[in-house]
Design a binder for these strands. Structure first.
Lengths: 238, 238
DNA sequence: CGATGACTGCTGGAGCCCCAACTTTGCGAT
DNA sequence: ATCGCAAAGTTGGGGCTCCAGCAGTCATCG
């Protein structure tokens, strides 16, 4: 089976091996198209296809006019979810507690639920909601997008109020009892690629978070995090 | 800026739009290379590149001899982590509790820690460990790979013993107090693509799970889950 | 001595072509 | 009516070529 493998795969696998075993360290230049054709005795099509595949995997990055280089693979920063945190962006809060400077912008607007949110919040599709978009930056780099949805009647009337969902709910006689977070991975939408400054081939972690009061969901948010820089850590007491 | 965009992007964006707004429903055929060149007045290179990009994103799938089709996007199955579960694969256990048939194979072998595991388990690099690989299948399809590492002296001597880490540890006077799971996303290694039967462009969710006894890690595992079929859900009581 | 400009090498976009392997379809023969 | 088979269409691998735009380098000119 390995005999009739496509030739570009030979190139891909050889370079991948060299990156993995360290003989091509981060930042090292990859041979150019012309060099690859000579080195592996393949056509230019195969050479460039190999480079494209490796770039698509995020292992190397191409710089026009310069060459391809092994991507620096920053250690994944761990966003720790180690206890209940009453904060619009618990993951950002964790970075802050690690001593990093975190800044953010936000913007609120009224909206209607629609089918997806109606399901998530167990409300009617035309329920009036407040939608708040956040963009968080840590150490100057974009770090997370968050979009929060909550019923209009709970809207915050001051910065203080906005920061604490739990306190705001409590003022309406609602006690939040559980937070549920659902993690999956997907391809970033174009707007997210822009906002998070993502390289090609990088996926995002998408967390759907819902605050529950008993058996009733009262707020839900979508949190989008660059998949190449972060991991999310959950602690569960036994 | 949109004027000098590469032509293949025009094709990509038009098809993506049609998939998103439903005019190309799941299973619908995408025009062939030849048809695309005519329809969008582009060369064959641009047409095939557009198809490749869309396939790389997992939006469409190419079948040799037949054509490209809009991928069926199964709803993400939620693997629920809603309470402490003493099971080699809590995510598989959750599927089971959803009424799906889950089967698995496993295989144990002795190994040495090495630098990475030494760090994770806070032990010396040459500590003797037992490595157990699992492959879980749900409804006939591969669902999760897991590799568990634990100190050799805790090895299970029977099937019953193997199933409960907590009981086994307890027999050694060790009480597990916390489970920490760290989630990130990455490109599957070739062996994982094979074993999990992943389509091109699909990422995996990689969960590093560690069982702690007080401030001492006693077991750690790597759990690899197809990113296109599952989401992981964590519940946190407030 | 310093600045400008020409030259070379590289990537990424694009076009056209050939071929093997596979699917689908439709026709013709039984 | 059904079976078998050939023809047509499609993907994926691969080859060759051209060009625009960018990044260095190096030599030449003021």
């Amino acid at each position: 089976m390995a005999t009739s493998d496509p030739v570009y795969l030979r190139v891909v696998e050889d370079i991948r091996r060299q990156i993995n075993d360290g003989s091509l360290p981060p930042g090292a230049p990859i041979p150019s198209r012309a060099q690859l054709t000579r080195k592996y005795q393949v056509g230019e099509t195969a050479a460039r296809h190999a480079l494209r595949v490796l770039a698509g995997e995020g292992l190397i990055i191409g710089r026009v006019g310069s060459g391809h280089y092994v991507r620096e693979r920053p250690d994944l920063t761990s966003l720790h979810r180690w206890r209940f945190l009453d904060h619009p962006a618990p993951f950002a809060a964790d970075l802050q507690s690690q001593g990093r400077r975190v800044t953010w912008d936000w913007h609120s607007e009224p909206t209607e639920a629609g089918p997806d949110l109606a399901r998530r919040l167990r409300i009617g599709e035309s329920t009036a909601l407040t939608k708040t978009r956040y963009i968080f930056r840590g150490d100057g780099r974009p770090l997370q997008l968050a979009t929060s949805y909550e019923p209009r009647e709970f809207a915050a009337h001051s910065e203080e109020e906005r920061r604490s969902l739990v306190a705001r709910m409590y003022a309406h006689g609602i006690k939040i009892t559980e937070i549920v977070e659902s993690v999956h991975t997907r391809i970033p939408r174009p707007a997210e690629s822009d906002a998070l400054d993502l390289a090609a081939g990088v996926h995002v972690l998408h967390v759907e978070r819902t605050h529950w009061a008993g058996d009733r969901p009262v707020e839900t948010s979508d949190i989008v995090i660059p998949g190449d820089r972060f991991r999310i850590t959950y602690s569960m007491p036994v």
